[in-house]
Design a protein around this nucleic acid. Structure first.
Length: 324
DNA sequence: TAAACGTGGGT
DNA sequence: TACCCAAGTTT
């Protein structure tokens, strides 16, 4: 074993956070659930979703046996709902077959990309493959003090991989990125890889890797609350944005208000504006006008009975505080 | 390849 | 306030 590998594994042995799957043995399915839930999601947030979802679905067959809407109900608030839709598709597609054990076979499944395929095959099945996530990319970029392409990062990760215990190695390097080699103010003094790192020899190790710089677009939108005794008008959303979740009538753009009212045959004079809300997506900043009217003879739904996105929950919370 | 896709926490 | 970013994938 090389010195850098020994140093990191030794550090990991005493500094690994006590995550559930490190404390006790869990199934490959539960590893897969964790990897998907943790995509772009913080550990502290993801853990409670993982506990909830693994408990309800100890295996893929039990997931496929219930409606997608049930999964989305457990997923609500976690974001990136395509993950849940793809996970459900995966469970259905699997049928009675066991989970594939290699990276290449896992890669064929919906919602499984290069990171997750390598993470699951190495952690759950011991395959010697290096996974590259944001942590690994950052650690390796700094070790080399270079702006690397994806391919170059993967090559470096493959070379560094400790093939005797690939799952443990992958977790160790991610753990380092997550707790020591952080995006800002990295704790180089505590880093087991410092003797091997080029970035730490510079005044600005946080310079690597380059940041993404995606600018949020500002958009206007209107939401309409149609309220009655039985609840609110809620519809199941379709498409990629919050698809599969339910939500209030919502429209973006200049003529959103007029279009919304026309499409629902609502008269102008029965409408009141109860407030403005802002809600951020990663790619856009939404300024929402919240309109209220009373239901004549619409089909009403209790918001507690259906999966909702945080955006809709915020709007409903405003309405409920207004009503009380 | 770049943009779309949620949400919440940190600075 | 504004911006960054988190165990990424899809198109």
């Amino acid at each position: 074993m090389e010195a850098a590998q020994a140093a990191l594994l030794s550090w990991y042995e005493t500094n690994a956070r006590p995550l559930p799957w490190r404390i006790s043995k869990v199934s490959a399915w539960e590893i897969l659930l964790a990897e998907i839930i943790l995509q772009q999601t913080r550990m502290e947030t993801g853990l409670e979703y993982w506990e909830r979802i693994r408990k309800e679905y100890p295996n893929p067959q039990l997931m496929a046996a219930k409606p997608q809407e049930r999964l989305l109900q457990l997923w609500q608030g976690c974001g990136y709902y395509a993950r849940a839709r793809n996970l459900y598709k995966l469970a259905c597609q699997l049928g009675s077959k066991p989970l594939p054990q290699t990276r290449d076979d896992l890669l064929e499944l919906p919602g499984i990309g290069t990171y997750t395929a390598a993470a699951v095959s190495s952690i759950a099945f011991g395959e010697s493959v290096a996974c590259v996530d944001g942590n690994v990319r950052r650690v390796i970029s700094r070790l080399r003090a270079k702006h690397l392409t994806n391919k170059e990062v993967q090559i470096n990760a493959d070379q560094l991989l400790y093939t005797d215990r690939p799952g443990e190695w992958n977790q160790a390097i991610m753990e380092l990125g997550s707790t020591i080699c952080t995006p800002r103010k990295p704790k180089c003094v505590k880093c087991p890889l410092q003797p091997h790192c080029l970035a730490t020899q510079t005044p600005t190790p946080e310079e690597w890797p380059a940041s993404r710089k995606v600018k949020q677009k500002k958009v206007q939108a209107t939401v309409l609350i149609i309220a009655g005794n039985g609840g609110l008008v809620l519809n199941e959303r379709e498409g990629k944005i919050l698809g599969g979740l339910w939500g209030l009538p919502y429209q973006e753009g200049e003529n959103a208000q007029i279009n919304l009212l026309n499409s629902l045959n609502i008269e102008d004079e029965n409408i009141t504006e109860i407030g403005q809300i802002t809600h951020d997506f990663s790619h856009k900043k939404i300024q929402i006008t919240v309109l209220l009217t009373s239901s004549k003879n619409h089909k009403l739904t209790n918001p507690r009975d259906v999966p909702l996105a945080t955006l809709d929950r915020k709007v409903i919370a405003l309405y409920e505080s207004e009503a009380s």
